[in-house]
Nucleic acid binder design. Sequence first.
DNA 1: AAAACATATTTCATCAGGTGAAATTTAGCC
DNA 2: GGCTAAATTTCACCTGATGAAATATGTTTT
Lengths: 262, 262
Amino acid sequence: MTGPARRPGRTRTGDTEPVRTLERGLTVLRALGQHGPLTLGDAARHAGLNASTAYRLLHTLQAQGFAQESAGQWRVGVQAFATGQAYLGAGGLIPAARPEMQAVVAELGETVNLAVLQAPDVVYVHQEEGRGLMRMFTQIGARVPLHCTGAGKALLAWQPAEEVSRAVADMSFQAFTPHTLTTPAAYLTELEEVRRTGYALDNEERELGVRCVAVPVLDGGGQTVAALSLSAPSSRLPDARVPELAARLQRASEGIRKALVT
Amino acid sequence: MTGPARRPGRTRTGDTEPVRTLERGLTVLRALGQHGPLTLGDAARHAGLNASTAYRLLHTLQAQGFAQESAGQWRVGVQAFATGQAYLGAGGLIPAARPEMQAVVAELGETVNLAVLQAPDVVYVHQEEGRGLMRMFTQIGARVPLHCTGAGKALLAWQPAEEVSRAVADMSFQAFTPHTLTTPAAYLTELEEVRRTGYALDNEERELGVRCVAVPVLDGGGQTVAALSLSAPSSRLPDARVPELAARLQRASEGIRKALVT
DNA sequence: AAAACATATTTCATCAGGTGAAATTTAGCC
DNA sequence: GGCTAAATTTCACCTGATGAAATATGTTTT
């Protein structure tokens, strides 16, 4: 009378036509998330929709709490936040990654972060703190520019070329330190290097004195779904140690991939 | 050539017919968020939809990363998380709450937290640290069980009975200290007390020597969207002071509600 | 203060495309 | 190997989403 059947039916097809109306509504919601508060007109523009259509979609999103409006400015709503938090729960990426991350921290003692790609930013979704006293400089949920983080490079390096150019076009290349890469050309060259070596570096590009090594995390289909990064004061992360640390992260990444497939 | 026009057109109507397809898609997404991983059939049931319709909506959500599927189980996807995070940015709950929280800290000197409800846990989304040296025991983004926190009680107390029983069913009632409530019955009785007094307590139920007072934060529609809690060593938080502190938090909560509506 | 403008909102005729019932396929179970 | 439960696909119907245009409203300019 217990254990009901699991996953009958056809296993994989995926060639069903998407529902256009929902597709468009989600695009509007994403636009709100990515490009901050927007007027109706701007939201329509970003989503590539008729203003009339955007109007109806936004009001529908609002009715469910996924969007909210005040003084003509539209934003992501509470419901979107609350629903999105469920991503952190059981069965997702985080539970798969946590044990691997803890193992790395136990072994190396440095802080390890898990990040996912989001438009022109990186979003940190989990962190295991190292034993060092280094003040945590990334908060869970924080959005950080793609161009100045190891995780950002690792996330982008194996994306299709089209994705990469779109992302690069959106990037600010703001200089945080003298080491920050500030041109698309420099960044693209760096991505090639990342593909060649299999890992990415942040060489004090975001914060002076802090270096970071990062590797991609793949899912069963070989898609990059996240990046694992290890951060430490430059003194504890000399060039000589990088390959060894990267290798350790790659092992963890592989472990996560297996846990994800399950 | 600067300052573009703001908020022309009609100001308030809101009587546009919602877009049914989007409405349904969002309902499915919410169902995934609230009731953990679901099979297609269960998702359809929760959303009150034909299985065929739910199938198409889920696959559309998946194509955009708002939902993900593995082994026949559907969950909230990365895109939903990342988009939802935008809520924490400008104009959302946190900016509305921050000044009120800072005012309370300035006045009382104790650490104040802002938390939202998530399944059988509480998620802390913002913190203003008090002047005391007390080691911070909650991290932003941390998930803490619902049964042993003031914030958890405040968040749940005014939810619909159905929500409450579902949450209680999911709770572990793990004992952290001798004071932790460890039975559903004790917890439900406590919730009644919370509704009666208007505030919730954590009487060393999570950590010995730490007490906490919490109140709900409502949005314009009277829905509980968050909880404000004040934590301090028991020595600084005797019973006699509780009503006064709760009243101060309620004032802050009211201020946040107004800032949210704007 | 009137005119010109920009943006939001509403209306409406059209028909694309969403819908659910039913048929089909698939996987687990006896 | 048939049986059952769940997922997936098909398809004819017709709802309901759509965009152009009209209207309302606030902002800037003259």
